[in-house]
Amino acid sequence: MSTWISVARYQLTDRYVFVTGPWLILALDFLITVVVVAEWPGHHGHAAYAGALSAIYVYLIVTGALGIARQLPFALALGVSRRSFYAGTALLAVAVAAVYGLGLTVLQLIERATGGWGLNLHFFRVPYLLAGPWYLSWLTSFTDLALMIAWGMLFGIVYRRWNLMGLLSFIAAQVLALTAVLLIIGVTRDWSGVGRFFTTLTIGGLTGLLAALTVVLLAGGYATMRRVTV
């Protein structure tokens, strides 16, 4: 356990990966959105849905990938086991997701209180996903952020274990799987079924599903990690 904490500290030594990076991206993204919405000629008090919040989620995939791919070799040289390195990094990922989820929730409360930053901007409020009470927003943010880091970690591990070709195959497999799903829906012309699935599924239910997916990714990452060589 104390080794796990040391690994988490090790991961935070280069602050950019886990701390500065995600928030810098989000801050820039927020500023750009505010400027665009404020200057938008057609915007007169209409609600503006930015969707730009996704930047921090996407960035956390990078965080997870760098957290493994760039940090692992030196940690192993210092006598850290793969297991401890993975556990410490996963622990940090979950903690970071919880704290950042709370941060996003607080920003959402401020956004509500200030009437969308005085611009009726919906930056931290996302219809369906982040629209409920604060604790549900926190839970959803927490889960989704953790999912992104866990997914990113898996990319990092695949790269470390099977190099660039492995990483490319891994990405290609995911693109293929997604295409297959879309194709099946398209061929069966059952888009309404997809719509029904999401309307019957509450955000709490979706969060539960995504939490389960996060656990699966973390378990898969651990299994892959065990035979990584450096």
């Binding site: 040391s6 500290r9 030594t13 280069d14 070799p73 040289a77 210092l78 006598g79 850290v80």
Partner: peptide, 25 residues
């Protein structure tokens, strides 16, 4: 401890690398 010629480091400063090593030994 294993010191290798081709060691890949994270984006650390020298003092970070030394500090990190001190945590594990």
């Amino acid at each position: 401890v294993f010191v290798r010629e081709d060691q890949a480091y994270p984006d650390f400063r020298v003092r970070h690398a030394v500090q990190a090593a001190s945590w594990f030994y």
